[in-house]
Amino acid sequence: MADLIFDPEEHGELFSAYLDGQLTPSEVAIVCELLDGSEEAIEEFRYLRSTRRALRLLPEFEVPAALLPDGHLGDRLSAYLDGELVSLEHRRVTKHLVDCADCRAELQELDRARIAVRSLPGVETTMTGEIPATPVPRRRRRIIAGAIGASAAAALLVGLAVGGGDEPVFVLDDLNARHVARASAEPGFAFLPSTIEVAAP
């Protein structure tokens, strides 16, 4: 191989890309050869490396918490009660519920509300006029729920739960198992929240 003469204009870019791990093997070979052949190349390389390091060591700012959604479960709670979450998300939701008293309380209220709704005679047919023949696709349902807002859906549900009764003892595993069992035993059960959400303004 002919000796390479280091030219900062021509080769500096290779050094930068080398530091970023973005070179092809043949380009890496050129970089190695340049670094072997010249003090000037080594100095240029060191300056670029330090500059890159200074950039990468810039402290990271915390994003103000008020800019992000609060991290609570929101409209995922209904899907959770329906036993409709895929296992990965189900685990995430369960984990959050273990840690978060607010969401546990909301889940409990949603649960009481849906029991009250389900005990109303004929509610599944009066909400929308008919029982849907096929479930609303998951994707669309989520968008609808997002559009009207979880709180609106929850308010509607809670509004129907007049005279909630005694405070039940809340056991997460219990509740969870009960609803998964019920959702699979009663096909109409899982459709209820989506029909209510669709009917909301």
């Binding site: 500096g12 870019e13 050094f15 930068s16 890309a17 973005q22 300056y47 670029l48 500059t51 950039l55």
Partner: peptide, 13 residues
């Protein structure tokens, strides 16, 4: 992209 990153670092340097 490669050229911009390098020229940017070089100016910073």
């Amino acid at each position: 992209v490669r050229s911009r990153i390098h020229r940017g670092r070089k100016l910073l340097r």
